[in-house]
Amino acid sequence: MTPSAAAAASPWWPVALAVDVPAGVAVPASLDGDDVVVWRTAKGELRIFADRCPHRGMRLSFGFVRDETLVCLYHGWRWRADGGCALIPAHPDLAPPPSLCVPSYPAAEADGLIWMAATIPGRPPPAMTGCTPLASLVVDRPAAVIAAAIAAAWGAMDGVCARLAEGDVVLRMAIQPVHAERTMLHVLLAEGDPLVAIGVAEAWRDRFEAAEPVP
């Protein structure tokens, strides 16, 4: 599965567990090499922006949330949830022009996962009904290698999602291609004990890292 092939199947990509981005917090994420900042306003509204302040190129994921705005660490420029600039502190009397804004991406939250899309999709993100989010695990292998390893063991993936069963544990995984050599596995628990399940998920992570490259 290449990211573009999977994008044809589902336009949504997982970027974080919802619980790992609480209200008032900004975190960086990468999707296929593109850097984004996933953040929530103080009231909890979810947004995904390009991770670059238009002013001087500073990564906005280094900034902090103040009320309903994301503040750039470098010069304190404040960005509203709609992407527009609310304040330039060096010139407090200046009204920032409406054209000044940060590019943003469609974001959605469903069943404990945060999803993003490149363009506004016509359908909701994949359902993980009845699952409990467990953890996001990094795998230092390309997403295609992991997809192939999953397919070999558990059958073809459903878009970016997979179902794995081992012993009393049933896991759902959503796969995020971070960049050419790195993937994040967002792991949810369908059945079983959470502490046992996380061990199972980590063991699968290790197997994915040992998997052969796709020729």
Partner: peptide, 14 residues
């Protein structure tokens, strides 16, 4: 290392 691969460690630092 911006801890993108370690979300629980990021939350713990907060």
């Amino acid at each position: 290392e911006t801890l993108t691969a370690f979300p629980k460690a990021r939350l713990w630092t907060r």
